[in-house]
């Protein structure tokens, strides 16, 4: 299967297999007007299988989302058909407004105006906990 090469855009590579759709939702790519390609279960020497997302435009990505959902992915910026930059996300110290606390006892369940904030509790395990009630994300 082939997808046209990109002239100006972004390739998000090395996404764990099965996570591309989740990233698509959390990065709010459905709101874009440019071409977006999602490749699932692409054979990979390093990962066995991986997902890839290709965007036909250079946009501002939410790096917190990338760091949280796919910390090992690589983001390649393409300009005039050439890869001009390769970046990797980092686990963010705080996640603001990305995910919601699921604890029914959390204050966020009754105070709608409160931002859902999660803090990195364990960098090695990539564990996040709600700032308010400390429930695991």
């Amino acid at each position: 299967m082939t997808i046209d090469s990109i002239k100006n855009g972004i390739v998000i590579d090395h996404i764990p297999a099965g996570k591309a759709m989740l990233l698509y939702q959390y990065l709010k790519l459905d709101g874009l007007e440019c071409s977006v390609a999602l490749l699932k279960n692409v054979p990979s020497k390093k990962m066995g299988r991986k997902d890839i997302i290709k965007l036909d435009e250079v946009i501002d990505l939410n790096w917190d989302v990338l760091g949280y959902l796919a910390p090992d992915c690589t983001v390649n910026i393409i300009r005039e058909g050439e890869e001009v930059e390769k970046k990797r996300p980092e686990l963010p110290e705080r996640l603001v407004g990305v995910i919601a606390c699921k604890n029914p006892r959390c204050i966020t369940t009754i105070e709608q105006e409160l931002p859902h904030i999660f803090k990195l509790a364990n960098r090695q395990k990539g564990t996040y906990r709600c700032l308010y009630c400390e429930s695991k994300a």
Partner: peptide
Amino acid sequence: RHFKEGAPLV
């Protein structure tokens, strides 16, 4: 004292 967790932090 609050019945919701995190209320005093807020």
